[in-house]
């Protein structure tokens, strides 16, 4: 898998004139990488992810996955939204099967795949439950299982833990890291939470706002099997503070980039 974004810009035309949301974006994600883009609101990070997903079209520039230009949404770029997007009338099992059903996979194979990925996210017990019976964190885990079941080349995540409380969020971050270590899925995630980005990813694109541009690409020099104790690590804190400084508009010489 090779995701490449070249000279991307996105302009929105509103009644008050046009707004440049993203300008001159160049980035890439390789097979098995966990990459984050961090930025404040107004940095166009959600727009960026929507463009990669094919839900919006760029004004200029190009996005390719394995050399193929993105022209619209597709199951090769599965997306996890911040809001809960489970189909409320379907059981958890049916939700996980639904992507495969849309793609024309037969019922038996669908069931097996869904059961496998429900096991991966640890929700086998809840296969027959309705989404409304699940907590917020569980809903997102089902959404992740549903996306993984479609075997995407890359999983796109739009602040997936933004609506969760602090404790659940930390649990989900650990869950996400373990899941990534186990499955080797490539991930591009956007977040405003610098701590979350450093904890999860190997590379971080730092975006500045108005228009959204990439200010810096930061390499996170930490082992891949992390847990919450790594937050006490000097290297973790230096990276986090460095990125915070960048977002505050200061230079950050300490960063590896």
């Amino acid at each position: 898998m090779h995701l490449e974004i070249n000279n991307l810009s996105k302009q929105f035309d509103t009644s008050q004139g046009s707004v440049l949301a993203l300008d001159d974006i160049n980035m890439h994600v390789e097979t098995g990488e966990f990459v984050c883009a961090v930025g404040a609101s107004g940095s166009g990070k959600s727009t960026l992810l929507r463009l990669v997903a094919g839900l919006d079209m760029p004004t200029t520039g190009e996005i390719t996955v394995d050399g193929q230009a993105v022209t619209g949404p597709g199951s090769d770029r599965g997306m996890i939204f911040q809001s809960y997007t489970l189909y409320p009338w379907m059981s958890v099992q049916k939700n996980v099967e639904f992507g495969l059903k849309l793609q024309g996979v037969g019922p038996k194979e669908r069931r097996e795949m869904a059961s496998y990925y429900l096991d991966v996210v640890g929700l086998t017990k809840f296969a027959r439950s309705l989404p409304k019976q699940l907590s917020g964190g569980m809903k997102q885990r089902v959404a992740i299982a549903r996306t993984l079941a479609s075997r995407p080349k890359i999983m796109l995540m739009d602040e997936p833990f933004g609506a969760l409380d602090v404790q659940t969020k930390e649990t989900m971050q650990q869950f996400m890291l373990d899941l990534w270590n186990r499955t080797g899925v490539s991930i591009l995630m956007i977040t405003h939470d610098v701590d979350e980005a450093v904890f999860l990813s190997q590379r971080i694109y730092v975006l500045t706002a108005h228009p959204g541009t990439i200010q810096r690409e930061v390499f996170v020099d930490l082992p891949s099997d992390r847990d919450y104790t790594i937050r006490r690590d000097r290297a973790f804190q230096d990276t986090r503070e460095g990125i915070m400084d960048l977002l505050r508009g200061k230079t950050a010489p300490a960063l590896v980039s």
């Binding site: 094919g54 597709g74 199951s75 997306m79 849309l102 793609q103 479609s150």
Partner: peptide
Amino acid sequence: VPKALLETTYTLGGQRRQ
């Protein structure tokens, strides 16, 4: 109908008809 629900459907490989 939440827009995100429809967009999810598209990113799962769904067509407009579906």
